[in-house]
Amino acid sequence: MSQPTAPEALGSLTDETPIDPNSKKAKAITGRSPMQIALGRLLRDKIAVICAIVILFFIIVAVFAPLINKMLGVNTDTVFPSQYLDMLGGGMPLEGPPNNGFDPDHPFGIAPQTADDNLAYWVEGCRTSLTIAALATLFASVLGIVIGLLAGFLGGMVDKVLSFFIDLFLTVPFLLAALTLAPILNERFNTADSYVTIQKFSLIGVLAVFGWMGMARLIRGEVLSLREREFVQAARVLGMPTSRVLIKELMPNLAAPIIISVSLMLPAFVAAEAGLAFLGIGVTSGASWGQTIAKAVKYFEQYSLYLWEPLIGVVLLVLSLNLLGDAIRDALDPKTRR
């Protein structure tokens, strides 16, 4: 079964990579020492370098979010909106954008209705976005690699059953599943003290559970071809235990497809997190770009900056991740020319 590439699939969460792992090209890579060559090619790619710098910027913001907010003198504390908003004049901020000039206390302005500081929420939103995308990628990758390895290596019935499950998960509409699951998970844990964290993890769980299939298929295909190769055959004949064959012999040869998969997953998860928050689920307590976008849409005419801030955050991050991923895929495949 192939996968949809339509835009509604939330970026390319379930996208097939453009490279067929069984093709001669992929084998050619694994034959040489690919990583150094690829890295060299990547460093010569200007767009890739720029994207990497942008991504690095976002990572720094995410990692040091509290510190950055402190340095800039802003915070996500709740404030009383009546002190900062023009209550009878349409609820727009008394100082700063959109109706007044730059407000040094709140460089990004403040939000209508709640008077929250936009910059602080932007920085925290970046953190939320990257944390969730990174962890979801991690879990989905592990899941995908394990299932792909098992299916490809063991073959037979195991392969049939696992392939069926891959198809099954590809058939479930991801958005609907996420929409249905997230509130149920939230309700389970609503009395816990660490609710905000649990909510994030349940979102990560949902993303990972519906995001591992691409990786699994890629790995399975790769393993299917690798396991017929002499060095694997030899290891098996020598009586190496299966787990050792998998980890010692196969894994090192799977680096390229894994990197390719991850480069597809990361931007897709960033987009998915924001998209779900935009639809009103996902992170509801705490800061999230998607949530701010959803709130800001109705103020677009009066206060477009409020929408543009998180929107540019999402677009820039997803764009850089996608372009860098593209460059990585190119670099790993010596045959493509852009």
Partner: peptide, 16 residues
């Protein structure tokens, strides 16, 4: 919690 407005309201109450 389902309603973002209720979340915003609760933040105000808590702060108050």
């Amino acid at each position: 919690e389902v309603d973002p407005l209720a979340v915003a309201v609760q933040k105000q109450i808590t702060k108050g």
